[in-house]
Design a protein around this nucleic acid. Structure first.
Lengths: 243, 243
DNA sequence: ACGCTCACATTGGCCAGGCCACCTGTCAAG
DNA sequence: CTTGACAGGTGGCCTGGCCAATGTGAGCGT
């Protein structure tokens, strides 16, 4: 019992949550002015500094805008915060990566900035070296990121990063380690990485995208197999994690 | 002269910038502990509440993590903040949208939740109605967003939103208005919107993606034409915008 | 009657100082 | 060796205040 520990959420974070929720639900509309800080603080029963922490966070996130003497207004549409706090499933992570990463490989092949290619080759060499030396490797994330960098598209690079964020949970790394336990799978992966790098360096965008798509597809299937086996062993999920 | 007005950046925002810059440059590494708030505030010559505003913002953004009695640690990798504050070009916005949106259409066709289809049809009907009534339309963003929602993938939906954010500048809306000045172009767009909705509703993912890709490609070419004409008229760009 | 100026209320930006709660390492008692 | 109390360090939060930018309306002159 008490499997789920108490998640402490700071007062400022709770205030931010409330404001976001109000925007999501449409209670506060876009370009609408919020009550003055002093008043809102009184309404929410927090001090002004606490409220200001929440405001500062939302301002950096592009949700609010505050101006001295004028007040604070909402600048984000509900759609922009619609997915905040939604849980992301492993299959959704792969959906996103399959949408983004082959395209990144294609863009990288189209642009081919010398320093990016060098950086990419370096990441590939590191992976090769690790594989030759130890017969295994921990992850090829560096290559994925190098491709994103070579694509020179900040919007897609950010999107990839937000997908990769989910691959850092202990749950995900466990599954990955399990998926990479098969020596044959590893060899195939390393080979795909080599090929995608050469395709990009040669400017063969379509081929690079194709290899990369296949790479991700294999990887996905191996991971989801692990997920399936796990749920077979333990039908009732008891893994809980928060953030 | 003095074309660029002084952009007032709050002290808290500047502190956040400094910390992000330190992570980008590798001066602070991942999982490294930061100095205590009181000390860091002294170093940066700001008060603790101001520093705390910056911390709150970075915590919401997933860069820091603070725990009572333990201190604050960096949890973001440099790659995760690498693209912060980078200017995004119109061509990059289209690169990203072309990567994401056809895939979203395909996912929407694969999932086909009834309420999402209804919502999508509604957005399409609104556009139709506006077009029939006025012979023009302001934007079909609602349809794009409805497709994103129907795809049920928060990672991709967020990515699309961050790309669409750039389409809200006055500069972009001007270009769009100009691109949509051709009645023939509008008719084609409305027709594509109708078709993509029907393909999605019918579960024809490949076709939906294909139509949507064509739609975006036409749109991109019209917009970038407008951009080109504009730069022909006025070779030296004097448009400046900040933030 | 119209336009202009300027004082003032409003509102966010920032600070000082303080109290409390929590975590961690230490050290003595069992 | 284990257990528990304890103290120092640290973040969480508050009160109260001053300053600076903004917008407004009264009062002025024309």
């Amino acid at each position: 019992m008490f499997a789920a520990p108490v998640v402490v959420r700071s007062a400022a974070a709770q205030v931010a949550d409330k404001i976001v929720a109000a925007i999501q639900s449409g209670r506060i509309k876009r370009h609408e002015r919020l009550p003055p800080e002093r008043e809102l603080a009184k309404q929410l029963q927090v001090s002004r500094p606490t409220l200001r922490e929440a405001f500062a966070a939302l301002e950096l996130a592009g949700v609010l805008e505050s101006h001295q003497g004028r007040g604070s207004v909402v600048v984000a549409a509900p759609s922009q915060v619609a997915n905040w706090g939604i849980e992301v499933l492993p299959t959704q992570v792969f959906e996103a990566r399959l949408a983004i990463e082959p395209h990144l490989a294609e863009l990288a092949a189209a642009k081919r900035y010398p320093e990016d290619i060098a950086h990419l080759r370096e990441a590939g060499a590191d992976l090769d070296e690790e594989y030759e030396r130890t017969g295994a490797y921990r992850s090829d994330l560096a290559v994925h990121r190098a491709i994103a960098r070579a694509a020179r598209n900040p919007v897609l690079a950010d999107a990839l990063e937000s997908a990769l964020k989910y691959t850092e949970s202990s749950r995900w790394t466990d599954l990955r380690a399990q998926a990479l336990a098969e020596p044959r799978a590893r060899e195939g992966h390393v080979d795909e990485v080599r090929r995608v790098i050469e395709h990009i360096a040669a400017g063969e965008g379509v081929e690079a995208a194709s290899v990369w798509r296949a790479h991700l597809t294999y990887y996905r299937d191996e991971m989801l197999d692990g997920l399936k086996k796990e749920s077979d062993r333990k039908p009732a999920g008891t893994t809980g994690s928060a953030s």
